[in-house]
C-alpha cells in the first residue's frame, strides 16, 4: 500500500470545477468527439470509459487545454481556462518518452525547475517509491516504475486537477494495483482526478462518476454502481455490451 504524503489542498467542496458544453472535435473529415456535455465536481474521480477510438484521449486533451475544441467549450469554475491553467493541472500522458540517458532523479529535478513552488523532491521520491531506481537510466525502467515516475512528474507542482490517460495500460496486475493505491490516495487528498480507461474493474473501483463513450458520443453518465443498478446488469462490461453490442474485454484482448 502506497502512502501519499502530498500536502493537503483544502477541503473537498461539492462545486463544479470543469464544465463541458457541446464539445466537438474533428480532424479533417474524421469526427473524434461528437458533442459532449458533462460537469466534473471538484474532488471527484471522473472516468472516461470506452474502447480504443471512442474519443477518450481527444476529450481528455481538450480538458487538459492541450487541444482546442472544434466547437463547444470547456469551462474552469464557470469561466474560460485561465492563462496559467497548465500550472493548475498535472498530466500523465498515455505515451511519453523522456530524455535519453536521464535518470528519474534528473527528470524530477528538471520538471521541478519549471515551477515556482514545487513539492520537495524527497517527498515525491518517498511517495512514489522511486528510491530503488532513482539513479537508473529512465529507458531501463519497468512499466510500473515508469508509470510511477510519470505520475510523480505530473504531480511535481502540486496540481489541483490530475489527468491520467490510461495509466495502467500494459502493466502487470501487481503494478496495476500499486497504481490504483496511488490514485486512491490522491483522491483521498481531495484532488480532482480525471482518467480514461478501458478496464471495467478499474473504473468501478476508482471512479465516483463516469461517462461511457462510443464513437465520440456519450452513451451513459453517472456513478458506476448506479449505472449498473439502473440497467439491472451485473457489471459495467455487461452494461457496455448491452449498449454497444461489443465488450471492452474483447478490445483489450485485441490490443494485447
Amino acid at each position: 500500500m502506497v502512502t501519499v504524503l502530498l500536502p493537503k489542498i483544502g477541503p473537498v467542496m461539492p462545486e463544479v470545477i470543469l464544465s463541458v458544453t457541446g464539445l466537438e472535435k474533428s480532424y479533417d473529415k474524421v469526427i473524434a468527439v461528437a458533442g459532449l456535455d458533462f460537469d466534473i465536481a471538484k474532488g471527484e474521480c471522473f472516468g472516461l470509459l470506452g474502447p480504443n477510438g471512442a474519443g477518450k484521449s481527444t476529450t481528455l486533451a481538450m480538458l487538459e487545454g492541450m487541444e482546442d475544441p472544434t466547437r463547444g467549450t470547456v469551462q474552469y469554475y464557470g469561466g474560460p481556462l485561465p492563462s496559467d491553467y497548465q500550472t493548475r493541472v498535472g498530466i500523465q500522458f498515455q505515451a511519453t518518452a523522456l530524455q535519453d540517458f536521464l535518470t528519474p532523479f534528473d527528470n524530477l529535478k528538471l520538471f521541478s525547475s519549471f515551477y515556482d513552488d514545487p513539492i520537495p523532491m524527497d517527498h515525491l521520491i518517498d511517495q512514489f517509491r522511486l528510491q530503488e531506481f532513482l539513479h537508473r537510466d529512465s529507458r531501463r525502467l519497468s512499466g510500473g516504475q515508469r508509470q510511477r515516475l510519470l505520475l510523480a512528474l505530473a504531480l511535481v507542482h502540486n496540481p489541483e486537477i490530475v489527468f491520467l490517460d490510461e495509466p495502467t495500460t500494459g502493466l502487470d496486475p501487481r503494478s496495476r494495483r500499486d497504481l490504483w493505491d496511488v490514485v486512491s490516495a490522491l483522491k483521498a487528498d481531495g484532488r480532482t482526478l480525471i482518467l480514461t480507461t478501458h478496464y471495467m474493474e478499474e473504473a468501478e473501483i476508482l471512479c465516483d462518476e463516469l461517462v461511457i463513450l462510443s464513437h465520440g458520443k456519450a452513451l451513459l453518465q453517472g456513478p458506476p454502481k448506479q449505472l449498473i443498478a439502473d440497467a439491472g446488469v451485473s457489471d459495467l462490461d455487461t452494461l457496455f455490451l448491452s449498449l454497444t453490442g461489443e465488450t471492452l474485454v474483447k478490445t483489450q484482448e485485441v490490443m494485447k
Binding site: 500522458f93 511519453t96 530524455q99 519549471f114
Partner: peptide, 16 residues
C-alpha cells in the same frame, strides 16, 4: 526525435 516520442508534448504541458 523528441517530437515523435511525445516528449515535446509532455513539455508543452508545463509552463516552459
Amino acid at each position: 526525435r523528441y517530437r515523435q516520442a511525445g516528449y515535446l508534448r509532455r513539455l508543452r504541458a508545463t509552463p516552459l
